[in-house]
Each structure stands twice: as structure tokens, then as C-alpha cells.
């Protein structure tokens, strides 16, 4: 189990590597610079209280 949260640069580089995409360094630097703000906005999504309304993606409607 990892004991530390990877730093931003490691995270972004790893994500692109997993995707098999290799932007040039200048563009990679921009993705890394922008990631903390992006991550903060994403983390806010996890703070939204769950509700019973969040049904699954498959919703079958039996024929009448």
C-alpha cells in the first residue's frame, strides 16, 4: 500500500504515461501547473451529499 500521496508532477506524468500520450515538455509543464486547481474542483464533487436519487446507469422499464 502506498504510504504517501504522489506529488502533482508525478501524478500528471503517470496519468499521461498510462494513457500512452506524450506531450512535449512545455505542454506537460502546463498540464502540471493547471492540475492543482483542476484537482480542487474535482474534489468538490466528492463533497456533494449523496441522495437516494442517484440510481444506476441501467434503468429498465418493463413493458406495460
Amino acid at each position: 500500500m502506498p504510504t504517501e500521496t504522489p506529488d502533482t508532477e508525478t501524478t500528471v506524468r503517470t496519468m499521461f504515461a498510462l494513457a500512452g500520450v506524450t506531450p512535449p515538455e512545455e505542454e506537460m509543464a502546463a498540464f502540471i501547473a493547471g492540475y492543482p486547481a483542476t484537482r480542487a474542483a474535482l474534489d468538490a464533487l466528492y463533497a456533494v451529499p449523496d441522495t437516494p436519487l442517484t440510481d444506476g446507469i441501467l434503468v429498465f422499464r418493463p413493458a406495460d
Binding site: 501524478t11 496519468m15 505542454e27 483542476t38 456533494v48 436519487l53 446507469i57
Partner: peptide, 24 residues
Amino acid sequence: RSFVGIGATYTAADYAQAQKVRRI
């Protein structure tokens, strides 16, 4: 590519959570 490339940095959990938030 600057816009769409950001999509590489989101996790599967992030995408799933976004869809949940859409429903909420």
C-alpha cells in the same frame, strides 16, 4: 490538445462521481 489532454488526468472514479453529481 490542451483542452482534451486534460481528460488524461482524470481518474475513472472522477468520471463516475461526475455522473453521480449530474444525477443529483
